[in-house]
Amino acid sequence: MSRKAQDATMHIRRTAGDRVFDTAIIILFVLFTFICIFPFYYLLINTISDNDLVTSGRVNFFPMLKDAAGNGVFGVQINNYLALKNVQDLGSSVMVTVARTIIGTALMVVTSAWAGYLVTKRKMWKRSFWYRFLVVTMYFNAGLVPWYMNMLMMGLTDNFLAYIIPGMVAPYNIILVKTYIESIPSSLEESAVIDGASTLTVWRKIIVPLSIPILATIAIFGAVGNWNSFQDSLLLMNNRPDLYTLQHRLYIYLNSSSNLGAMMSQGGTVSEQAAASMLNQRVIQYTVSMVSIIPILLVYPFMQRYFVKGIMLGAVKG
């Protein structure tokens, strides 16, 4: 309402200067938004155009295919995506990344929900000490190499569990859940306790269902983090290339000076081989990049609902 009132008053008073200013900021924002979005679009049209046209730099604003005379005409093809199954090691990286995203996120959410609930219980022995014990880890870390030596000592190098277990306790998410649970009326919990419900039952039947919004928030952010994970794979998986995450694999592709086309595994039908030989290094790089961006863009509309909630709750420190 106030917005409308404001608009109404401003309508009356809009001067020429105001109009210039309004136009200027709109142009500014349109430009910046273009800069943010265009690279993704450009990446996409490079993967769905004719590869020869891409290599010769003739794809600029629209996806292009070659006509009979060899000239570029508007059109799309998806052969690059189909040919990805021949790219060596890509399959295992996708599997590993999907697995860690699902398992890692699920365990992180359950742990955060559980710990976030327990730290609201004032009766717990030394509660505030244990809460601080968890929260301090956000601000302090021992350093990269001691962390690496610790993972080595725990047997978590070259081991898939290294993607899952250390990420289970996420102090920031515990704070978010705790803050949220504290906003739930305690009468709900109390009435269940009077009816004889155990802590576990209260958590499962009351707290978790009521905390779905915040749990969804941390799940989505956790999933994006897992999907984008690169550093732990780079540091810990030296002897297990089959456990590299997708981003790590992409990083290797982006840095490989050799022709990736040569890395294509042999086999498949003749047409597959033909498609494979058409792929050049750049196009593989672009297509793999696109494959790792697409899931993010797919969950993006869902994430958006939780942005503000997540970031604002985070500003409220426990």
Binding site: F32, T33, C36, I37, P39, F40, Y42, L43, N46, V224, N228, S229, F230, Q247, H248, L250, Y251, L254, Q285, Y286, S289, S292, I293, I296, L297, Y300, M303, Q304, F307
Partner: peptide
């Protein structure tokens, strides 16, 4: 639209830089 780049990894930013 301007928030999207925040959610891609630095490796992907580099891929975009290449392209």
């Amino acid at each position: 639209l301007t928030t999207i780049p925040n959610f891609i990894s630095w490796v992907l930013v580099y891929a975009i830089a290449i392209c």
